[in-house]
Amino acid sequence: MLFRQLEYLVALSRERHFARAAQACYVSQPALSEAIRKLEEELDVPLVRRGRTYEGLTPEGERIVVWAQRILADRDALKDEVGALRTGLSGRIRIGAVPTATGAVSLLIDPFCAAHPLVTVDVQADLRSEDILRRLQNFEIDAAVSYLREDVAENFRTVPLYQERYVLLTSAADNLGRRTTATWAEASRLPLCLLTGTMQGRRVLDELFAEAGVRPTPRVETDSVAALFAHVRTGRWASIVPHAWLHVFGIPPGMRAVPLIEPARTVTIGLVMTAREPGSVMARALTEIARRTDLAAALERLPDNSVSQ
């Protein structure tokens, strides 16, 4: 059995198409098909349901893919570990992030890159929290910055980073924009642009609105926090954004960021990794940086609203 055969099988499982899997592996489709056929012969089980087109993996194939992902992840972790012992940490780390936390990820990556100058970073942003956990389990990313829900803390290793809190982003000319605070009930009556309902960040907002006894009816929904800022800038819409994003865009001209109260609840954002040992040397190095970096302090103060006037 060759590592390359396992890579082909994992790629086929991911791409669900022989030609796309071959392209992802930089080989011809016949070469990929033949390697998988030989793997089937060696394991003495059918791995792929073949017809006129790709019809999916067999039950045996689905189980073998899980083992293949583990074996390939351990191989990569071993190579990284040996490389780190010989010349220092090098290679590529893959970090996933939910949209609401993407603006804070740079505050973690900056000290990480300073400590490990030979490492390159691949940030996979705007992922749903469910997709992040799946990618971690499938070894498609090394670590993630996401919501630390109860089920996450139970099944993964986590490092709390900061408390996500929320502000009403609105026009400086709006009545609420001239206030020092606003309530969730007041915000619900504005023409809102919010994240889509399938995203964890939006579900958190809906819980807070429900706690205030209201239910928002946004006219515009998007999967991008940057798009929320763009819509508010038109002057037609208001939005609710995580305070961490104000440290990326500041408070754009003509806008105000008003802290939300009643309730004034926060949600924990943290670093998430698989619980397997010894695990990825990249993830361990990022964990050390996360424990030494005070993201909460860096994000604590809101930018001065006066800059937008």
Rank of each mutant, 00 (worst) to 15 (best):
G88W: 06
G88V: 06
L89H: 07
L89G: 03
R92M: 11
T102E: 13
T102Y: 01
A104K: 07
V105N: 09
S106W: 13
D110W: 14
P111M: 10
A114H: 12
A115S: 13
P117N: 11
P117K: 14
V119A: 06
V119R: 05
V121Q: 08
Q124K: 07
L127P: 01
E130L: 12
E130K: 14
D131T: 15
I132P: 00
A144H: 07
Y147F: 13
Y147C: 03
R149L: 10
A153C: 10
P160A: 05
Y162F: 15
Y162R: 04
R165C: 07
L169W: 07
T170Y: 03
S171L: 05
A172D: 15
L176K: 09
L176V: 08
L176P: 06
T181G: 04
A185D: 14
L190W: 05
L190H: 07
L192W: 04
T198P: 00
M199T: 07
Q200D: 10
Q200A: 12
G201K: 09
R202V: 00
R203W: 03
L205F: 04
L208F: 11
L208T: 03
F209W: 13
A210K: 11
G213Y: 09
P216G: 03
T217I: 11
T217C: 03
T222V: 12
V225M: 00
F229M: 02
